[in-house]
Structure formats: structure tokens, C-alpha cells
Amino acid sequence: MTPSPQNWTRAERLTPGRLAAAVHQATGVRLVVEGLCPGGQVGAAYVRWPDGHRSVLKWRPGGRLDELRAGPLAVCEVLRGRGYPCPSTELVLQVDGAVVLVQQLLPGAPLDVLDHDGLDRALALNAAQAGLLAGRADIPPVRLHLLDDGPGYCLHEPLRRHSARGAALEERIRSVGAAHPPLLAGNDVVHQDFHHGNLLAVDGSVTGVIDWDGAGRGDHRFDLVTLRFGLHAREQPPGVVRRLDGLLDALPGDVLLPCWAHMSLRMADWAVRHFPPQEVPHWLDLAEQRL
């Protein structure tokens, strides 16, 4: 659902087969590609190791291995140490303009919709992220990009150029940015793409959370705002969105407003550049609810 960096450069030409070949050349490990994983904005494929166990091969365009180790991989190490259901990383290396990861294949499939039981589990998982990075100043905080462009997403100019409505929204986002710090405060784990499509489930029970590539330090309640934008993508069971809206309405303004402005910019800009034109007002409608 949520955009990821799209600066592919040379990595744009890399396929799962070529990446598996690069892994073999660099490490001697021969991975058999079984097929692409469904969904997502960044490539992922199922692979099988020589011993027969299956994993997920992912590639992050424009990424740097040192940044991934210092941020998302360090976050996942903390989470797994607390029993949080996120995948382990079995192998990671730099291939041309991409970081390539081989990660544990968790049981379950992504949720199509979020029912009330799923929302309960999502809220419990989010609450478990609180305070886990206290004393970990080495893990970078989340940058909100309310006054500057993000790395391939959260771009301001496309929204300004789209329409008078888009320009007015971008101006409100910048005004929020001028009144709030550029980095998310707090010592919680922040997933940054915590939507129901990244929750795995078996028979309706959540078994894991995937796609931690943007994880960092900040306020875990940021992820509730991300979840709300994810639920906007399609109709949900009755009452689920209303429940989450009630929780968001109870958040302090200095938490909710910058997080909402970030997600408004992220999704409105992405819709302008990547979605059919008729879908853009759908995201502007949501953004304007709290801006």
C-alpha cells in the first residue's frame, strides 16, 4: 500500500534470478527462485535454500547496506529479542544499486481486510513496540519530510502542481512542518508501513508483521496513522474504521498532526504520480479530514 523508494538506477534491471545468481557468486549459496511474492511496492520472491527450507528474497533499490544494518535490521533484532513476530534476516549483501536480503518466511498470508479481532491484535502489537529503543540513540529516528522531499516518496512538487486543491493541501502540510520538529520524537519502534497488508494471518489469527525495511525510532503511534491510511484503500468490516478513528482522535495534537501530515503527503503524492487520476480525490479526501 505505502510507497517505497523507487530510485532503481542499475538495480532496475535486476530480476530475482539475477539476484540469486549474485548471491551465489558472493557467498557460494545457491538459492532456487520459486516465484514472485504477491503485492508490495518493492520486489520480493520466494526462494528455496540447498537444505530445502524456504525464505523470501527481497531487494531494496537505492539502498545502502550500512544504513539498513544501523536502522531496520537493528530494530528487528530488538523486536525478535522481545518475542515480537517479525522475520529474521538470514543473509544480506549489496548488489549494484540495491541491498539484497534473504529473510525468514513467516507462516500465514497478508490480510485482505481487517476485522475487529485483527484490529485488536494490530493494536496489541503496536503497543508492544513502545519504549523498546530506549538507550538506542544509534538507531536513527524517523524523518517526517514535511518541509523536504523523501527518497523517492513524500515529494512536494507533484502535489503542488496537481491542482489548486493539491497545492492547498501541500501548503497546510508545510505549515505543520514549520511548527513541528523534522524528526519523530520518542524511543519506540516505528514500522513506518504498518498496514493490514503487512500483517500475516492463519485462519484469521495474526502470525507476523513483515516489511520492516523503513523501520526506525520514534513514537509507535505513528503506525496507527499509517494503519488508518491503509484501511482507506478498500472497504472494511463495519465499525473497524470508526474504532480506529476514535483512538486517533484521542491522541495529543502534537503527535497526531505531524504524523497525519506525513501520511497525507506520502499517499497524496504517490497517488498523483502512480494511481489513476480518478483515484487521487479519494486520498485528498482522507488527508483533509484532519488537516
Rank of each mutant, 00 (worst) to 15 (best):
L159N: 01
R143H: 15
L14N: 10
V255D: 09
G239W: 10
A127M: 01
V176A: 05
L14H: 12
R82W: 12
R18D: 11
H195C: 10
D138V: 04
Q25I: 00
S264R: 08
D120T: 12
P38I: 03
N187K: 00
P151R: 11
D96R: 14
R13M: 02
L133E: 02
Q41N: 11
G216T: 06
A109W: 14
V206E: 02
A233M: 14
L123I: 02
E170I: 02
L119S: 07
H220D: 05
R290W: 02
A271D: 02
L155W: 09
L231R: 03
L114I: 05
G43I: 07
H262D: 04
P107D: 07
A215K: 03
D211S: 06
V176S: 04
L111C: 09
G108P: 13
Q94K: 03
L73Q: 12
L144H: 09
V56W: 03
V102S: 11
R165P: 00
D285L: 01
G197Q: 15
T9C: 10
A70W: 08
P61E: 10
V241K: 05
G214Q: 08
A168T: 02
I139H: 04
A22R: 09
L155Y: 10
T27K: 00
S205K: 09
L101T: 15
R234D: 09
L73P: 01
F222A: 13
V92T: 11
L114T: 01
D115E: 06
P5E: 09
A178L: 12
A130Q: 08
Q41C: 10
L183K: 05
G17C: 06
